[in-house]
Design a protein around this nucleic acid. Structure first.
Length: 200
DNA sequence: ATACCGATTAACT
DNA sequence: GTTAATCGGTATA
């Protein structure tokens, strides 16, 4: 059920971003587990993508995580307030990543409500900062291996993905340009954002 | 050492 | 539609 390493280490980050819709994102934080179903993603295509932190091969203490093998969590702080959760893809030294921008709360909703201090609404899981807030992800979690869950890791915080068995059909997926990257020039026009819109 | 900026959000009008 | 909040990352000196 847990997504295997090869799901993440494939070459096409845009395809992976699309396939992540409908997958289950789990966190085990301080011994408490919860899960959301991924409903929105964006692909960031590494050194050739002006919108990526790793554009041009930029390699710093922060972006170093993106150069690890696929299946690693890249979490960073944005606007001084929000922890943004990304999934590193491709092989070592190719800094591709997928930003998770939305989830549908699935397991342990009471814990999520505790974390945001109010009842869940339809919009609670929308937005990358909100995803981390609901799931308890903090930027200190950057570097966590999404394929490594064992007894030794139980005491530590863990993040992993599982296949939900849900197949999200193309006619329920809205493909648009990415949000908040106006500085990226022509790359801001790339259709790298995937949003799952369930039929009513 | 210092200055600028951002893969955002919530609360406004 | 607008805007304040908020602080680590990055570049420049």
């Amino acid at each position: 059920m847990i997504l295997p390493r090869y799901f993440y280490t494939r070459e096409d980050v845009v395809k992976i971003a699309r396939e992540l819709l409908g997958k289950k994102l789990f966190t085990g934080i301080k011994g408490e587990t919860c899960c959301g179903i991924i409903s929105e993603t964006e692909a960031y295509e590494g050194v050739t993508d002006r919108a990526s932190h790793a554009y041009g091969g930029r390699r710093t203490a922060r972006t170093e995580i993106m150069f690890r093998q696929g299946g690693t969590a890249y979490v960073y702080l944005c606007y001084g307030i929000h922890s943004l959760f990304n999934i590193v893809t491709h092989t070592v030294d190719v800094p591709h990543a997928v930003l998770v921008r939305g989830i549908i709360p699935d397991v342990n909703k009471s814990l999520m409500e505790e974390r945001i201090g109010r009842k869940l609404t339809d919009k609670s899981g929308s937005g990358p900062g909100n995803v981390s807030k609901l799931l308890g992800i903090h930027y200190s979690h950057t570097g966590i291996d999404l394929c490594l869950i064992n007894s030794a890791a139980e005491a530590e915080d863990a993040i992993w993905l599982e296949d939900s068995g849900i197949n999200v059909p193309d006619d329920e997926v809205l493909i648009t340009t990415r949000i908040g990257i106006d500085y990226a020039g022509e790359d801001a026009k790339l259709p790298y954002r995937f949003e799952w819109r369930e039929k009513q």
